[in-house]
C-alpha cells in the first residue's frame, strides 16, 4: 500500500535521526486522558524493567483515539474509558484480547473559590456556569446518564434547569477539570481520579449510591502489532499488583472482578 510505505519512510527518517544505531523496541500505547498520571508513571516503570524498551503513551479523549484507530492508526495497546470500544474495535478484527483493568467514578467538582452553596448533586441548578463533557465522548455520556437518573429521582425539571446552566461541552475530561480549576466554571463532572491531587482547590462531591456512575476501563491488546510479546507483557504488568498500584495512586479503583471482558 503506497500510503503505508510513505508513512514507513517518514518513520524511518524520524527513527534514523533520533535514535542510536540499534533502535530499541517501542510500544505505542493509546490511553484515555483520565489516565494521564497513572499511565505515565506505569509506562516509566515498565521501561525501567524492560530497558532499553521505549513506551510511547499517547493521551487524548478516548473517542478521539478511537477515531484515529478507525482511520488507520495502529497502537499496540489501547486503554480506553469506555467498555463499548471493545466490541466496536472487535468487529473490525483489531482486538486480540481485552481486560477491564480499572474503574473510575463520576464526581461533581466545585471550585473552592466558589461562594455558591453547592454541597450535593441536587444543589446543581444553583450553579451559574456548569461545564460537562460532550455527549460524543465517554465522560459526557456518563454525565448524561447521571443527570438523567438524578432527574428521575429529584423531579422538578432538574435536568432542564441544569442544562440551561451548562456553558460548554468539552471534548475531554481534562478540559472540564481545567475550566473548573481556572474558576471559569462553578462546577463540572469529572472522574474521581481527575480530582485526585487537586483537593486543595476543589470540593469533590460524590453522588449517592443511587446516582453512582462507574466507568469501566478496558485495556485492549491490539492486533496486528509489531511487538506482540512485549505488548502482552505490558498488559500483564497493567493487571499485576505492582501495575495496579499506579492506578490506585491516581485515585482509580481496581475492577470489580478481574476477568476478561466478553470476547467480541
Amino acid at each position: 500500500m503506497p500510503r503505508r510505505s510513505l508513512l514507513f519512510c517518514v518513520l524511518c527518517i524520524v527513527g534514523l535521526t533520533s535514535c542510536e544505531p540499534a533502535p530499541p523496541a517501542r510500544l505505542l500505547v493509546f490511553a484515555a486522558s483520565s489516565l494521564s498520571e497513572s499511565m505515565t508513571s506505569l509506562g516509566k516503570t515498565f521501561e525501567q524493567q524492560h530497558a532499553p524498551v521505549k513506551v510511547d503513551v499517547q493521551f487524548a479523549g478516548s473517542q478521539q483515539l478511537l477515531a484515529q484507530v478507525e482511520q488507520g492508526a495502529r497502537p499496540d495497546l489501547f486503554a480506553a474509558a469506555d467498555l463499548s470500544f471493545v466490541s466496536r474495535l472487535g468487529k473490525l478484527g483489531l482486538v486480540k484480547e481485552s481486560h477491564v483493568f480499572a474503574q473510575n467514578q463520576l464526581v461533581l467538582v466545585v471550585a473552592k473559590t466558589s461562594t455558591l452553596e453547592l454541597h450535593a448533586i441536587e444543589d446543581l441548578p444553583l450553579a451559574r456556569r456548569i461545564v460537562v463533557g460532550a455527549k460524543e465522548v465517554p465522560v459526557g455520556r456518563y454525565t448524561a446518564q447521571l443527570l438523567e437518573a438524578a432527574d428521575r429521582q429529584l423531579g422538578h425539571d432538574f435536568l432542564k434547569r441544569v442544562q440551561s446552566q451548562i456553558v460548554s461541552y468539552e471534548l475531554n475530561v481534562k478540559q472540564v477539570l481545567g475550566k473548573v480549576l481556572l474558576g471559569e466554571a462553578d462546577a463540572g463532572f469529572v472522574y474521581l481520579s481527575d480530582a485526585h491531587g487537586h483537593e486543595d482547590q476543589l470540593r469533590v462531591i460524590e453522588p449517592n449510591a443511587a446516582l453512582r456512575v462507574v466507568a469501566q476501563y478496558p485495556l485492549l491488546l491490539m492486533q496486528p502489532s509489531a511487538q506482540p510479546k512485549l505488548a502482552r507483557s505490558f498488559m500483564e504488568f497493567v493487571l499485576s499488583p505492582p501495575g495496579q498500584q499506579h492506578f490506585a495512586a491516581a485515585g482509580l479503583t481496581p475492577p470489580a472482578v478481574a476477568a476478561p471482558t466478553q470476547q467480541p
Binding site: G61, Q63, Q64, A67, E70, Q71, V131, A134, E136, V137, I166, V167, S168, Y169, E170, L171, K179
Partner: peptide, 27 residues
C-alpha cells in the same frame, strides 16, 4: 476559541468546533 470560548451549540460552537465535535462520533 476552543480553550477560551468553550463549546456550546448556538453560543460558542462555531463551524471548526462543530467539525471537531463531529469527528468524535461521525468522521
Amino acid at each position: 476559541t476552543l480553550m477560551f470560548a468553550g463549546n456550546l451549540p448556538g453560543r460558542t460552537q462555531t463551524m471548526p468546533l462543530l467539525i471537531y465535535t463531529a469527528m468524535e462520533s461521525d468522521f
